[in-house]
Amino acid sequence: MKVSQLLERRREQWRNLEGLCQELEHRRVRRLGGQAVSHFASLYRAACADLALADAYQLPPDTVRYLHQLVGRAHNQLYRSQIFRWRDWGHEMFQVLPARLLCDRALWLAFAIFWGTFGFSMLLAYASRTYSEQVVGEAMMARLQEMYSKPVTDRPGDASGMMAGFYVMHNAGIGLRCFAAGLLLGIGGLFATLSNAVVLGGCFGFMLTVGERDNFLQFVTARGPFELTAIVLSAAAGMRLGFSLIATDGLARTASLRRAASQATPTIGAAVVLFCLAALIEGFLSPSSLPYEVKAAVAVVSVALMALYIFGLGLRRRV
């Protein structure tokens, strides 16, 4: 048989495959119907066979290039991306993740660094005004005082939704940025954690010394546990990425990074969830006129919930 005849015979099938690829690219598989899908599969196999033999049978280079592209295009339609499966994620979030967090040394390191620095900075700011002036800055101090000069319950009721949205965008954004910065050998994450802890601790310590203390506590108590834990979580996930480049555990650096990244993703997911919870509390509960005892109770309950998540679920899995 001649090459020309062979091409003539094949052209029809290749065109068909091309048409099916085009349909698959723009429509859902389900609407195409089973018969067309199995036809697609057999056409794809035929095109693969043609490509494999192309060189041996000296098809012209143009045709070979066309076949490479056709097979690649069909390959992409046959093997598609996997979308989220919620059940798998439930398993990941409620069984695998708590156990991993419990054993994650990066998390406890981030936890210790953040809370240690935070507490130290708060003590210093409480004890000395010069420290707060240097760390927080006088402009910021004046703004904080002005912000909490009135009880927060005076805020128009309508603004709660807006503030909740703002906190999601702003705080979860900071968390994700902190995570990405961890990729820079962990130094970025460490730096972000430290600077957050020093400044936040300074603000807290300073606000405890001034007259607006009660308004301030009304506002921050309820949301504090979720939000600060979320910052620690995102910093830890980032550090995991960064440290994986240094301590590779015998893997190649990119392989080690890849493994750390797939483990760190659920952690950052948990952090985003916590940021959203904190934003809801911050937007709706903190500025409400409920007594301080309720807000303190919310803080206690949220700490208990998180402890239950990490220790309760984590230890169960371990045994």
Partner: peptide, 29 residues
Amino acid sequence: ATGLGWGVTLVSWFALAWFYGGFFETYWN
């Protein structure tokens, strides 16, 4: 509910800024 409107807007801005690429690359192969 102007305040709530802004809240929804800000949350969708956040989602768009961080998850736009992830969403499309998942669902558009």
